[in-house]
Amino acid sequence: MAEQTLSRPAATTGETRAAVPRLRRWVPYLLLAPSVVYLAVFFASPMLQAFGLAFTGTTGRFGLESIRAMLGDDWFWPSVLTTLLLLVVLLPVQFALAVGMGLVVNARLRGSGFWLYVFLLPLGVSELGAGIAWYSIFVQQGWLNTVLQGLGVIDTPVIWLDYRDPVRVVATIVLAEAWRSTSLILIILVSGMRAIPRDYLEAAEVFHAGPWQKLRYVLLPLLRPTIRTALIVRTVLAFEVFATVVALGGTGTDVLATQANRAYTEFQDAHLASAYGLVILVVSLAAVAVILVSLPVRRERGE
């Protein structure tokens, strides 16, 4: 009896030690649980409801009535083309700017920290605020025409926001969005650049690699996972550009987001608005799939 009594604490201690690893396995899931609940309540549930609205008509019957109405809308295909054009032009411009700014910040020169704060300032401006600010620049009596006339470059004000010339309007939207949101890509790229050991760049210098060679053969290959993340985030957000388009393009320029808003506010048709939202989701997923296929990381290539 005494031996059994003495052996109980040791057994209890062993069971406690064995239970600790089991508890540790559940710690990541417990930490992720609040985020999962939040996403399920505020994202997954509304998304499923939107799918239901998109595939039901005004009569409440399940079908493709809303999809047909969307495809029959005269502004549907122009809004799709404008959205894709905005993405195709905006993404390379922002990526090139972000890489250049990231190299300036990562050079660790005197004042590089100051330039980082300067580059991040536009993130504090809302999308609508940026659109209004750039509208004051491109309007006929705005800052740009005033400066160009003062320098003698032009004699009469140029109508930059000519709604009969959608390419020019899209160009102004690209400039406004590039100024406002390039910093988002910059933050991701700088974090990736600072995670790269300096030994790689020093080894490249030993072999007399120039700045362009170090960028092409050292930095960009090592930044592939970071670049992919940055492009995916910016691509998804590019399909949600709304206020800048409204401020600069007005009612003459439409993207999928503005069409979805018009369907809900002007036509008061939640089913049609949900159909536009479904298209935005599908096109976003397709664009993300293209990025994933185009930029595989080393493990995915089996190297």
Rank of each mutant, 00 (worst) to 15 (best):
V169L: 09
V139Q: 15
W77G: 07
L215R: 08
G252E: 06
R180C: 01
S191T: 12
E240P: 00
R108F: 10
V36M: 15
T5Y: 12
L184W: 12
G250N: 00
S274H: 05
V169D: 02
L285P: 00
A19G: 10
D269F: 00
E303Q: 10
L248C: 13
A130Y: 10
L175N: 08
Y163H: 15
G131R: 02
L278E: 01
L123W: 13
V236A: 12
T146C: 00
A209K: 10
Q149N: 05
T56A: 00
M1K: 04
P221E: 07
L281T: 14
G131Y: 12
V125C: 01
V282Y: 03
L281E: 09
I159D: 12
R8C: 01
W134F: 15
L189K: 07
T253A: 06
Y38D: 01
L84G: 01
E127R: 13
S136C: 11
Y276S: 02
P78K: 07
Q49K: 15
I159L: 14
A243V: 05
Q94F: 02
L97K: 02
V279R: 00
Q259G: 13
V218G: 07
L48M: 15
L123M: 15
A257V: 04
N145P: 12
W134I: 03
F55H: 05
V288L: 11
V279A: 11
D269E: 03
Y200I: 10
P21H: 08
V104Q: 02
G60P: 10
G100T: 10
I232N: 06
